[in-house]
Design a protein around this nucleic acid. Structure first.
Lengths: 161, 161
DNA sequence: TTTGAAAAGAGACAGCG
DNA sequence: CGCTGTCTCTTTTCAAA
């Protein structure tokens, strides 16, 4: 993960449809070299997948809410029960008063209410508190950062593999 | 946005590197027809971009937190001030006690503290409350849903454009 | 790790059911 | 709207430095 890798990640986050020739030109590499680096980034799991960014409104999911789920029992493995609800986009175990924080997208506030009810039905759940989003300033990919050029970052510096 | 469009979106969310021939086979269309539909989905803005999904840990962002930002002044247009902090991945105006909810990824908890301090420096901010994530169950794309086949969904059914 | 080139494959664009 | 065919560009692979 040197500077070039970060630049490649940043560019691919912006637009992954460009050719390796175009990518290479941006980062100052030949097409083949750019391709080889991206291939390794995928292999290492830095790039997990190539996906599309979809407008939630176009899919009729105009209501966004974060829900704090309070539990009286251990919810360490109720991830599957939450994953079964397609309206839930993220689920995290959190420190603090609530036990789990989930991100929910629904078509209407009525549908949101229904999701809350279904969350409530999950064993161990003792309460929910919804935070409704009025306006989204922005949602963007993780920042690749821009550290030193030589690639002496801490962490995995795998050679072979 | 009929059933085929939703299937295409779903498949592209899973893996956008596949050929149009492969996509078409999955949804029961020729390569050309699949290509044409995807082109229109992009044109309409349903598909906003083709991107990569990056592992935050690989980019040295192992700490995830949600921060409730309380404000005493109107924060309706402080989106830019928040966007200036690269560690902030999302920022939403919310209903309720706090004014803004932001999603933050940092390398360490010390770095998180530093982000909180910088948020605090934004005019109008009167307080912050951080919710630290202990474990992420899942993070996934918006569900395209699976409604009726004929495409009689409400919303934009644009013809020309 | 990078480069350059050659082969295999996918994308763009027709005209036509 | 969708299918098939054609042309062009890209991805992929490989030998060499």
């Amino acid at each position: 993960m040197d500077r070039i890798d970060r630049a490649l990640v940043s560019e691919l986050q912006r637009d992954a449809t460009r050719s390796y020739a175009a990518l290479g030109q941006i980062v100052g590499l030949s097409a083949g070299a750019a391709h080889e680096r991206v291939r390794k980034l995928r292999e290492r799991g830095v790039i997990r997948a190539t996906t599309i960014d979809v407008d939630p409104a176009a899919l009729d999911r105009r209501v966004l809410a974060y829900v704090m789920v309070e539990a009286n029992a251990w919810m360490g493995d109720s991830g599957e029960a939450l994953a079964a609800l397609p309206e839930i986009q993220e689920a995290h175990v959190i420190a603090g008063a609530a036990s789990v924080l989930v991100k929910v997208r629904t078509a209407t506030t009525e549908a949101l209410q229904d999701v809350l009810r279904r969350i409530y039905d999950i064993p161990g759940v003792s309460g929910t508190q919804a935070i409704v989003v009025l306006e989204t300033f922005f949602e963007r990919p993780v920042d690749p950062g821009h550290r030193d050029a030589a690639g002496r970052d801490p962490g995995q510096r795998d050679s072979g593999h």
